[in-house]
Write a protein that binds this DNA or RNA. Structure first.
Length: 423
RNA sequence: GGAGAGGUGGCUGAGUGGUCGAAAGCACCCGACUUGAAAUCGGGCAGGGCGCGAGCCCUCGGGGGUUCGAAUCCCCCCCUCUCCGCCA
């Protein structure tokens, strides 16, 4: 949520910033609504004050044993008028609230212009693109030859966009999770957390998936509604929801492995082959809760933490800055890590690292007590994949494949596979 | 699933129709005492909105209702805890 104060004071500035995303915010209409709210609120508060003062007078008069009949009639009249203005005020406030929850975050000035993925500038890259003296296969073919990657079985059990892994592929998949968590806890100062995979609407509203993006989620039949978590960002970031964190506790750093569930509505026909885009996938997520003045530095740090995984695995990747038209709803600035996939001869997203500034914190009422002011102030939240496990598995299979279709195990993972060096 | 108890400020916890946005304690901040600290004493200290300000309004899990007036009474919902049943 954008600071309502800023929206009131300078809706034009907000409008100009959001326009870079291609988002249309009608500042004039907002100003008019806000004006009406202010009038109604002032009127309502005057009446409330009137009622409160007179009701107190009734209490006082009663204690003195005086007759209060005429006083009570008068206050009753105020009550009628009050309920009318209160109704009008509630209506307009609901309207304003709806607008507030559907406005995306303000962009950091350094976010590059652009409309889509193709406009994201590369910031840096690492690792040499592998060359093969044979035609590299994609992970589906490699999986089929090695055994242990069965899309047909998954389709029978669930449907399309699922996979069944078994044997050494399943073990490699699990090893990746352990490996990532171990590095982030031992070397990067993250605390491992285990969280619910079903989350409520309030949590999703806090991080920004609701109310606008319900169609991307799987909703479970339950009252009140549960949703399958689309990313650990939701349960983990909401750890600070409606809390006032002691300043000494910051920064908070959490690493969390969860399955993620996405409906992929609107992505029919996109990445239909293989494990790239699934309804269910595993991810190791990094979440940070920091003091506001530290969040930009934290974004660089967090991105670096995710990069370490790719480097240790020897996977070539690049870092791009998401442009204004491609950046997510809640984010002020995002770096994507893209790993090289030989079969596609291009880089594919494997991690997305964002600073949400106070946008999620305001929605969640997540605050910290600033010792300098003694007051609760909004924290800043960040997250990034560290990494998407399924896509990481794909990248390893494809980048480490040999002419005979077997796959070498990245050195860093050998201990996690009981010393095995070749799949 | 059944029965019961409870949700109040950063925390613990009192408050059961009217000077209660709320006792007390803890935590925290300021000051005094002290070489320094601890202890002790004095003072401050919920969140949000509006206003230049004095100040006003809202909020005691959420929503509705009764009333001139609700933390307090009534209804619905959510959550937590205890016991029983069932169960990974």
């Amino acid at each position: 949520m954008i600071d309502p104060k800023l929206l009131r004071q300078d809706p034009q500035q907000v409008s100009a910033n959001l326009a870079r995303r291609g988002f249309v915010f009608d500042a004039e209409r907002y100003r008019a609504l806000e004006e009406r709210r202010r009038t109604l609120q002032t009127k309502t508060q005057e009446l409330q004050n009137e009622r409160n003062v007179r009701s107190k007078a009734i209490g006082a008069a009663k204690r003195r044993g005086e007759d209060v009949e005429s006083l009570m009639v008068e206050v009753a009249r105020i009550g009628d008028e009050l309920s009318m203005t209160e109704e009008g005020l509630a209506e307009i406030q609901t309207g304003l609230e709806g607008i507030h929850f559907e406005l995306p975050n303000l962009l950091h000035p350094d976010v590059p212009d652009g409309e889509g993925e193709e406009d994201n500038p590369e910031l840096r890259h690492w690792g040499g693109i592998p060359t093969f003296d044979f035609k590299p296969r994609d992970h589906v073919d490699l999986g089929a030859q090695l055994g242990g990657m069965d899309f047909e079985a998954a389709a029978r059990i669930a449907g399309s966009r699922f996979v069944v892994l078994s044997g050494q592929i399943a073990r490699l998949h699990r090893a990746l999770i352990q490996f990532m968590i171990d590095i982030h806890t031992a070397e990067h100062g993250y605390t491992e957390v285990y969280v619910p995979y079903l989350v409520n609407a309030a949590a999703l509203t806090g991080t920004g998936q609701l109310p606008k993006f319900e169609e991307d989620l799987f909703k479970v039949e339950h009252d009140p509604a549960f949703y399958l978590t689309p990313t650990a960002e939701v349960p983990v970031t909401n750890l600070v929801r409606e809390r006032i964190v002691d300043g000494a506790e910051l920064p908070l750093r959490f690493v969390c492995h969860t399955p993620c569930f996405r409906s992929e509505a609107g992505n029919y026909g996109k990445d239909t082959r293989g494990m790239i885009r699934q309804h269910q996938f595993e991810k190791v997520e990094l979440v940070q809760v920091v003091r506001p003045e530290e969040s930009w530095e934290a974004l660089e740090g967090l991105t670096g933490h995710a990069e370490v995984i790719l480097r240790r695995l020897g996977l070539p990747y690049r870092v791009v800055a998401l442009c204004a038209g491609d950046i997510g709803f809640s984010s002020a600035r995002t770096y994507d890590l893209e790993v090289w996939l030989p079969s596609q001869e291009r880089y594919r997203e494997i991690s997305s690292c964002s600073n949400f500034t106070d946008f999620q914190a305001r929605r969640m009422k997540a605050r910290w007590r600033n010792p300098e002011t003694g007051k609760p102030e909004l924290v800043h939240t960040l997250n990034g994949s560290g990494l998407a496990v399924g896509r990481c598995l794909v990248a390893i299979l494809e980048n480490y494949q040999q002419a005979d279709g077997r796959v070498a195990v990245p050195e860093a993972l050998v201990p996690y596979l009981g010393g095995q060096r070749l799949l």
